[in-house]
Design a protein around this nucleic acid. Structure first.
Lengths: 111, 111
DNA sequence: GCTTCCCATGCCTTACAAGGAAAAGGAAAT
DNA sequence: ATTTCCTTTTCCTTGTAAGGCATGGGAAGC
């Protein structure tokens, strides 16, 4: 009996598929590729792009920063680099945790 | 004996002074004033601007977002509004706290 | 007369969109 | 099966509206 082994997980997405995911034009995807080093889709001989899941995830980050947060492209590039070695996020979380520790100590001393 | 009572705390800053603080042109300060509702310096009859400390603080925020973080002007405007009613920050902290609660519950169940 | 201010216009850059050509994938006809 | 036609999707290059100030000319006060 034939059963389908294909499409269990998609390996590559075309530029058209990716553009639809974010509801943007394909030319914007190409433009972002030219601006963000982080984006490096494979290409075949003809030049067609093949985006991996990781590429899509990166595009998601870019989309969020540029379109939802309102970063400039340069601002987003910088932010992405910072996030890569998670310095900043780490720092902010630590700050939060320190506050929380203080709070918990207050709670304990109130027992 | 004369001693100086003045300048204990400066009430107002000129646009030139403010521009120097951030090492930008006066025209940029004026431009930002036209873009950010938050900036409302007093003006005399002639039209000269008088910036309070609060105005300067707001400029500091704007400068930081636009020049250091790389936000667009719109992005910065949005961010400033969000920070005003601390909705977003609040939201993010709550997210963190929920994660931490989950973690603490795990810890307790391990006792 | 030198500084500091105003406002209006000019202008370079940013961030894409539009346009046109080439390739790929069918459906219909031969 | 192969040819022709049509549609779709891709590519890359060039065009362009808005963004983000800088400059220039003039008035007012010291």
């Amino acid at each position: 009996m034939p059963y389908k082994e294909k499409e269990i997980t998609k390996l590559y997405y075309s530029i058209g598929e990716v553009a639809k995911m974010f509801d943007v034009s394909t030319s914007l995807i190409r433009f972002w590729e030219s601006e963000f080093d982080i984006l490096k889709p494979k290409k075949n001989k003809k030049g067609d792009r093949f985006f991996t899941k990781k590429d899509v995830d990166n595009l998601h980050l870019i989309f969020h920063l540029v379109k939802e947060r309102g970063y400039t492209l340069k601002g987003a590039q910088k932010k992405l680099k910072e996030n890569k070695d998670d310095t900043v996020n780490h720092f902010e979380v630590v700050q939060q945790l320190k506050k929380i520790r203080g709070f918990l100590e207050d709670v304990r001393s109130g027992l």
